[in-house]
Design a protein around this nucleic acid. Structure first.
Length: 763
DNA sequence: CCATCTGCTTTTTTT
DNA sequence: AAGCAGATGG
């Protein structure tokens, strides 16, 4: 080895090095996709320790997912070694806040043994809060109320703030429900995800002593994906950074895709204003993709008005063309993808299925792909969707464990009280809760003292008492047994094992999942006995979908465009490139340019995941929950560059033959008829004032149009373009056409001399 | 109290 | 298409 070689600084380009070696004070690293931001973060940590003599224990690195945290830890292991690594704090925002609250919780009225409620628990609490405050679920969807509360919490507001300036009836109701919702959470010694951040901020707001303590503890803070931070996270970092402002953040405004979750791009855009001494470093060299891929991604994202202009570059000039494929429907689309994967493997292009990712906008789209891949015998792994931890049997087992740890957790109790069936229904549960409240003890304690509940029938009381005895035994076992053994005891004593193993195949599968959970628990046996259960429950509460992704698994990865952020693959398929699917219908319907721009950034994120090859596919018809739609190709396809993109409409002759049998016109007419019938049915139930609008729409539909979405047309001056949509207007036709270089134009058919172009995508 | 049936909502994205 | 809440009958 070279005497002068330096593993920390040598592998860096000049910009990366500038970021890594920056000393004290705020640092903003604008890191484009694939520009080595994780490398910069980890090398900076190593540099701080080695060259600036910062103690490892004084460094905090925060990420959004456990996966990202884990990756950082792995790289740091190589750079700074095990011992230093153990002293570092590397974790997610939520994980860090949870740890903080385990120590400082009492300052803000939280017991140290609080439970973290997931979405399902949250929903149960919310519904109870709604019932108790007489908020009708018919009028206000729990989901809507929940999202109002969540965004308000992310903005560090309380129910009173919301009540003080409501934007509508929903806000007013939400404020009332919220108050009760929070009380219920506290009664159950529980917090939700948003509380973790909110309460952590409140700790610092409340206690100068705590603030100083934590500020002293961390001399340097590093933050990944800063563009995704919300108000609470922003404030938390401001608190922690204190006067020193040794805060290094990495991010990319083009990859901001979580505004719906409260993320505020302004945090990164205004960093220099918030921290006036900030040093700014831009990383624009991409080490991942070919120039073709970068050009395509840029050509799409540059259509956003609200962005800082920048362009990535790479040494990898040229590269394979971007491929756009048209399919008949979603299963045909999946088939095209499967065949292409097989072809790539056959021709040695992809080393294995693990090189491939199939992306989609919504989880629901994975189904068609799964089915087809299974039929093709192609190995795949799904990231997200219904995760392991959401399975009923896993949640049940966890609920038992939660109840053992936290006897106040009434929602965990509700889940397991009658699972397996013990003849304990709503009435009995209500009596149990009432007894607990009356004697001012937890529900868990009330259960173990069920003899005193006399308001219920003998039979129920007996069942309650015997279940109480089981829980007493389990609680004492919890203090002595290693975690996996505790799980064994639990499933045996409660009868859950017998209940699951009902002889059916499904039962076996469920039982296998419980065993899988037990295997996961084995990881905790090295910890001191009393910490095993708490750590286990905490980590499980904070796992995310991406965390389940296994790099080494020899299988194609099926994943949403959101979850794929931060990953990379040699070959990427982006499916469902249709208006209404991607961009999502809700973004279109919102009428907000900002929402469409977020979809476009998502498209950018998707394309830039690809190292060597990117495919974009769309289907002419798509069945998504219930009925079939014929969506025009996505506007993002029109935004691809005119060069370096290959359009494939006829992949294999077989398909073309089967397509020839399809009567597009007939299908379309039928579909329109059905749609009209539905609309009529709906309108029949509406006041007369509404129907005027529908009549107009009907005449519009009646008139046949000459052009249809997907058609290629030639314009005398604008050149060749693709029809986005065509609507009948009076006696004319208004055609919206996307021209590769000139953008999207609205034209009147009779006026603009549009000619049909030989369509490379047609049949 | 439990099992079964029916009709209804749900789904955009997630820590 | 499917999972779930609410209704119904045992």
């Amino acid at each position: 080895m070279d005497v002068m070689s330096d593993p920390i600084l040598d592998p860096l380009n000049p910009e990366q090095r500038a970021a890594v070696t920056h000393g004290d004070g705020p640092l903003l690293i604008l890191a484009g996709a694939g520009s080595g931001k994780t490398r910069v973060l980890t090398h900076r940590v190593a540099y701080l320790i080695r060259d600036l003599a910062v103690p490892a224990s004084a460094i905090l690195a925060v990420t959004f997912t456990n996966k990202a945290a884990k990756e950082m830890r792995e790289r740091l292991d190589r750079l700074v070694g095990k011992e230093r690594l153990a002293e570092l704090t590397v974790g997610t925002f939520h994980g860090f806040c949870a740890r903080l609250l385990r120590r400082e919780g009492p300052l803000v009225g939280i017991d140290r043994s609080f439970a973290i409620y997931d979405e399902a628990d949250q929903r149960a609490v919310l519904r109870q809060a709604m019932a108790e405050t007489n908020a009708s679920e018919k009028v206000f969807a729990p989901g809507a109320i929940s999202s109002v509360i969540s965004s308000a919490k992310n903005e560090l507001k309380g129910p009173a703030d919301l009540a003080a300036s409501p934007k509508g009836q929903l806000d007013r109701i939400a404020a009332i429900v919220w108050k009760r919702y929070d009380e219920l959470l506290r009664d159950n010694n529980a917090v939700d995800f948003d509380d973790l951040l909110l309460l952590a901020c409140r700790v610092f707001e409340t206690s100068d002593r705590a603030l100083e303590k934590w500020q002293d503890r961390y001399q340097h803070i590093l933050v990944d994906e800063y563009q995704d931070t919300n108000r609470a996270q922003y404030v938390l970092l401001r608190y922690l950074a204190g006067f020193k402002q040794n805060l290094a953040v990495v991010g990319d405004d083009d990859q901001s895709v979580f505004s719906w979750r409260g993320a505020d791009v302004r945090n990164i855009l205004d960093f220099e204003r918030d921290y006036p001494n900030a040093k700014v470093v831009k990383l624009e060299q991409n080490y991942r993709s070919t120039q073709r891929i970068l050009d395509a991604a840029h050509s799409v994202v540059r259509n956003n008005a609200a962005r800082k202009e920048k362009k990535l570059w790479t040494d990898r000039q040229g590269g394979s063309d971007i491929v756009v494929m048209q399919a008949y429907d979603e299963s045909h689309e999946a088939e095209l993808v499967a065949r292409e994967i097989e072809r790539l493997q056959r021709e040695g292009e992809a080393h294995g299925t693990r090189d491939v990712a199939v992306l989609y906008r919504t989880n629901a789209q994975s189904r068609a792909i799964e089915d087809t891949f299974r039929a093709f015998g192609l190995a795949y792994q799904i990231v997200g969707g219904v995760s392991f931890y959401q399975r009923r049997e896993v949640k049940d087992t966890l609920a038992y464990l939660r109840l053992i740890r936290n006897p106040q957790d009434a929602f965990a109790l509700a889940r397991v009280l009658n699972t397996p069936p013990r003849g304990l229904g709503d009435k009995t549960r209500a009596a149990l809760l009432a007894a607990a409240r009356e004697h001012e003890i937890s529900v868990g304690e009330a259960l173990e003292k069920a003899e005193m509940i006399t308001t219920i029938p003998r039979r129920q009381q007996d069942a309650l008492i015997s279940f109480g005895k089981v829980m007493t035994r389990l609680r004492s076992a919890g203090g002595q047994l290693a975690l996996p053994r505790l799980i064994d005891e639990l499933v045996a004593l409660t009868g859950y094992q017998t209940y699951l193993k009902d002889g059916t195949e499904e039962g076996e599968e469920r039982w296998a999942n419980v065993q899988e959970l037990r295997t996961l628990a084995e990881d905790y046996i090295a910890l001191p006995q009393e910490e095993q259960l708490p750590s286990f429950l905490e980590e499980i509460a904070l796992v995310s979908d991406v965390d389940e992704y296994q790099e080494a698994k020899p299988a194609a990865t099926l994943i949403t465009m959101h979850a794929v952020k931060g990953l990379e693959f040699p070959v990427v398929f982006m499916t469902g490139m249709e208006e209404g699917v991607f961009p999502h219908i809700r973004a279109i319907d919102s009428g907000k340019e900002s929402e469409l721009e977020e979809e476009r950034r998502l498209c950018y994120v998707g394309i830039t995941r690809a190292k060597d090859r990117a495919y974009l596919t769309y289907a002419r018809r798509r069945s998504l929950f219930g009925h079939t739609n014929m969506n025009p190709p996505s506007r993002f396809l029109m935004e691809l560059p005119s060069e370096g993109v290959e359009l494939r409409g006829d992949i294999e002759t077989e398909e073309r033959d089967s397509w020839a049998d399809l009567d597009w016109e007939r299908d379309r007419t039928r579909y329109e008829e059905r749609k009209q019938a539905r609309r009529d049915a709906m309108l029949a139930g509406l006041p007369a004032a509404w129907t005027g609008r529908a009549t107009k729409q009907r005449t519009a539909v009646d008139h046949e149009t000459r052009f249809r979405a997907g058609d290629r047309v030639l314009h005398p001056s604008l050149g060749e373009g693709m029809v986005v949509s065509s609507v009948a207007r009076d006696d004319d036709e208004e055609v919206t056409v996307a021209f590769p270089d000139k953008g999207v134009k609205k034209l009147m058919a009779s006026f603009a001399k549009l000619a049909r172009a030989e369509s490379p995508l047609g049949r």
